[in-house]
């Protein structure tokens, strides 16, 4: 009962492919959480909404932007964001590369080690923050105890700006280094082994191979990681909120946390929206560099 019917129209690849209308449900959701809120946020930033006031909001032009840009907190929290970002990157990228290199050697048990090493990035940040807060405790914390046993005096970790920033960076690094490691590992895996063999035949040392072959070839990936991490540091919230709430004072408040505080603690909603627009503007160049760098990766 086999009837051979030729159906040239159906066989054309164009018809065999699904169509754009499959993306409509996604469009609806993204419109609800990104598109509409984004433009509504810009609109709010030109009003004078205060969540504690019952007066109907009115249009105030660029007033919120003027207030926000004149406020010292905007600049001090931006500075703190930059410090965390810079030190964080300097810690996370080298350690991530080092771990990726070790995993890339494919020693016995590598798979198990890899599974263990990525665990931190999966764990609930709030719970992680809580655990570290306990571990950083000045008198009873296990970290000061361990430091004490090698003769280092007690540190009041979350009590002063420098050490609190350091603690925040340590916790973020604990959760973020696996991400750096995974992306670098993927880049290392993509390098052809013949390159290494040729170099070894030519008598290159391990450090020469790393500097002349590995590093240049993973540079595009490192750029991508840097851009993503800059955006993630701007987003930093959960662990920061648990560890210090931006304190003491505003000593560890980042721009993102400051926006939250402005809107939901001080209830200056429109000013917070203006800060949100400013954060978006700061994010834009990073975003474009990220997209550009990511084209170089694959």
């Amino acid at each position: 009962m086999i009837t051979k019917v030729s159906r040239p129209n159906l066989l054309r690849r164009k018809n065999l492919r699904p169509v754009a209308h499959l993306t409509i449900p996604t469009w609806i959701f993204l419109a609800l959480v990104v598109l509409i809120p984004f433009f509504y946020g810009i609109y709010i930033s030109f009003l004078n909404i205060n969540l504690a006031s019952f007066l109907p909001p009115s249009f105030v032009g660029f007033d919120n932007y003027q207030t926000v840009l004149a406020a010292s907190e905007t600049w001090s929290t931006l500075r703190i964001t930059l410090i965390i970002t810079l030190i964080g990157l300097l810690m996370q990228i080298p350690i991530g590369i080092l771990l990726a290199l070790v995993l890339h050697e494919n020693l016995r048990g590598t798979k198990i080690f890899r599974s263990i090493l990525i665990t931190p990035m999966l764990l609930t940040p709030v719970a992680v923050g809580l655990t570290y807060r306990f571990m950083f405790d000045t008198d009873l914390g296990v970290i000061n105890w361990a430091l004490g046993s090698i003769g280092i005096e007690k540190v009041n970790w979350l009590g002063s700006q420098t050490s609190a920033l350091f603690a925040i960076i340590i916790v973020d690094s604990w959760q973020s280094i696996p991400f750096v490691m995974l992306l670098v590992l993927a880049a290392l895996t993509a390098i052809s082994s013949s390159l290494y063999e040729a170099a070894r035949v030519d008598g290159a040392t391990a450090s020469q191979i790393f500097r002349r072959i590995t590093l240049p070839l993973i540079t595009p990936t490192l750029l991508v990681i840097t851009m993503i991490k800059i955006m993630d540091f701007l987003k930093l919230f959960d662990t920061l909120f648990i560890l210090t709430r931006g304190g003491p004072g505003n000593a560890t408040t980042t721009l993102g946390l400051w926006t939250y505080k402005t809107g939901f603690v001080f209830l200056e909603f429109s000013r917070a929206a203006a800060l949100g627009v400013i954060i978006t503007i700061i994010t834009l160049p990073v975003y474009f560099l990220w997209r550009r760098a990511s084209k170089g990766v694959r």
């Binding site: 946020g41 987003k235 917070a272 929206a273 949100g276 954060i279």
Partner: peptide, 8 residues
Amino acid sequence: PAIVLLLP
């Protein structure tokens, strides 16, 4: 940052 979208 999610806060930018969550305010509106």
